[in-house]
Structure formats: C-alpha cells, structure tokens
Computed example of a mutant assay.
Amino acid sequence: MATFDFMLPYYGDVQLMQDAVRSVLAQTDPDFRLVVIDDGKEPDVPAWFAELGDERVHYTRNERNLGINENFKKCVRLSEADYVVIMGCDDLLHPHYLKTVRGLAEAQPGIGMIQPGVEVIDGEGRVTAGLADNVKRRLYAPQVKGRRTMGGEELAVSVLRGNWLYFPSIAWRGEALRKVSFQSEYSVIQDLALVVDLLELGEEMVVDNSATVFQYRRHAVSESSVQAFTGTRFTEAARYFDAVAARMDARGWPKAARAARFHSGSRFHAITMMPGALRRGQRDGVRNLAKHAFTSGVSGRD
C-alpha cells in the first residue's frame, strides 16, 4: 500500500482538473495513490481517466452531487495511507512536493500536519500576491525561517486570529484525519475547524517554507467568494467562532478563546469584500459584511 494518498474532490473546470492530476503524476517520488472523487457530470471525464492507464490512479463518480462538505468527508473515508493530502482540483504540485513532505514527515515521526511552502497563482496560472495573501503572510502567519513546529494553544491562537494556512497543500497524518474528519455543519470554514479539532487532540504541525512546492490557485470569483459577497460565508464563520470560543474557554486556553471571539482576520476579510458587494448591488450582503466586520466579536475583546 502507498504511504501517501492524494485525495482529489473534483467539481468544475475539466482542464484545470487535468492539469492538477498531471502535476501529481509528475512527482519525482512515485510512492503514492491518487484518488479522484468526481462530484460532477462532465461527460468526457471518466474516459480520460480510463485512458491514463496508471494503476496508482483511482477514479470514481458520485451517483448524485454531494456538495463540498460531503465530498470532502468521502475523501477522508476513502483514504488509507499514513499521510493524506486533500488538494484542490485546480491547484498544482511542484514535482518535488511529495519528496519534500515525505522528508518532513520522516524527520518528525508522527507529526499530525505538515504545511509546506506555497505560492499563489491566478486563474491563468500566473504567480500573484493579492491583498488577502499579503495580509495572511504579513499580519497573521508566524515568521518562520526554514522550519518550525507549532501546536496547542499557540497554534490555535494563531489560526483563530487569522487563518493563514493553505488547506489544500497540507499533508495530514491519516490516522488522525480519519478519526476527526470534517464537521457536517460547516461548508466554508471546515478547514479551520478541522485544524482546531486536531489541536485539541494534541496533534502538532510542522511549518516549512524553505522550499516552495505547491501552487494554490486563487480565482477572481470562487464558491467562497460568491458566498462572501452575499455575507453568507461570514454568517457561518460567526457561528463557528462563537462555538469554538466556548470550547477554548472550557479547555483552559483563554488566549485562544479571545482570538476566536475577536477573529480579526475574518473581520478584516469582510471589510475587503464590501466594495465588491457594493459593485454587485448586494445590499443585503453589504449589511451582513458590515455586521460581521464591525460588531461581531466586539463584546469578547479585552
């Protein structure tokens, strides 16, 4: 059995998905399994996978559309390997991604999460650095030169202030991932919820930015962006932050509880989405965004 699983929940653009698959097959380390779970209905996709003729690739199409959260959960259920990557169907791996991540796992046996070096690309594949990613790196991401291991309340505080992680690039220890999986009640903030759940179980993360090995694609308009302009994304976020703040208090992590209640990164994100909502005539969206940005969490601030 392969020691690494690449799980690819797929829905959307065929060409971008095929590019993502090719980037997996181009890995210099060949010891992996690629599992593609197709949640769409594009007619030529099954035949394309059949023609690949690579025994490491396993393709299945859902009988009915499951949606983002349920398809992600299916990826977790079908994973088998020691380490699992749930990559985006439009993201790209550098050829040395697996070699790099495997080396990090071997250097720290049993590490729960591995965040390797990431660069952001746009819809055309050009390396870009927009406002959201600059804020992530300059205000919220820990200043790591090379490699650093984080966990417990320290990492919980960091990601609850502002989620600077690139979820599709993370390698998860399979046993821990399958034990926790994704919470059914979240569809946009599910990645952050998973990280915090694992931290509560004592898992740690190694952050390594010594080499860029993953390309995260940020489109001008994505599912999360559409939800952001209407404000529904932040309704879910506020509900999560309220719930997790109570959990952090109960656990005796007061700094993490305060970070959750104020969630400054999420509030700032809402502010940056307001001009776009105005341009789109989303009046209700503007109100929802303003509520999240200027009133959510204020009562919990010290």
Rank of each mutant, 00 (worst) to 15 (best):
R217F: 05
D54R: 04
F49R: 07
L16P: 01
D54G: 08
M273V: 14
F268I: 14
M113G: 13
A176F: 05
Q143L: 11
I189G: 03
E204N: 15
R77F: 03
L25G: 11
F229T: 07
Q143A: 10
I189N: 07
G110A: 10
P116E: 12
D29Q: 13
H219A: 14
G276Y: 04
P43H: 05
A277W: 04
A293K: 01
I189Y: 08
F6N: 10
L198P: 10
L155T: 11
A105E: 08
D302Y: 05
Y216M: 07
D302H: 06
F182L: 04
T100W: 04
V298H: 05
N209V: 10
F182Y: 15
F4M: 13
K136I: 10
C89E: 02
E70Q: 15
P116A: 13
V213A: 08
V21D: 04
V180H: 05
T232R: 13
G276R: 13
T272G: 03
P95W: 00
A2V: 02
T232P: 01
E236G: 12
C75W: 04
G252W: 12
G110S: 13
Y216N: 15
Q215T: 12
N65L: 12
P30C: 12
E124Y: 14
Q183C: 09
E236T: 09
M87R: 04
P43W: 08
D133H: 15
Y186L: 15
S181H: 05
V144S: 07
Q27G: 10
A237F: 11
R178G: 06
R148G: 04
S222P: 03
R61E: 13
A176Q: 01
S299H: 09
N209F: 13
D191T: 09
E185W: 05
G152R: 05
D122W: 00
L160I: 04
G146I: 12
L16M: 14
M17V: 10
A245H: 07
K255S: 12
V157C: 10
W172M: 06
V24E: 00
R267K: 15
L192I: 14
M205Q: 02
S224I: 14
R267S: 10
W164R: 09
V188M: 08
P43G: 02
R233K: 11
R33G: 12
S225T: 15
V180G: 01
A193S: 14
F241W: 06
A107L: 10
K99L: 07
R261Y: 10
L16I: 07
G285S: 01
S264R: 11
E200L: 08
H94T: 03
Q190L: 08
P9W: 00
M1Q: 14
E106G: 02
Q15H: 08
R301P: 00
A293T: 02
L155R: 02
A193T: 09
G40C: 00
H269T: 11
I121E: 01
W164I: 06
A47K: 01
L201T: 14
C75D: 06
V21E: 01
F4V: 12
V45G: 00
S222W: 05
T230C: 07
Q115P: 07
A129I: 09
F182N: 07
A105N: 06
G151M: 07
G300I: 02
G112I: 09
G103Y: 01
R102N: 07
Y240S: 05
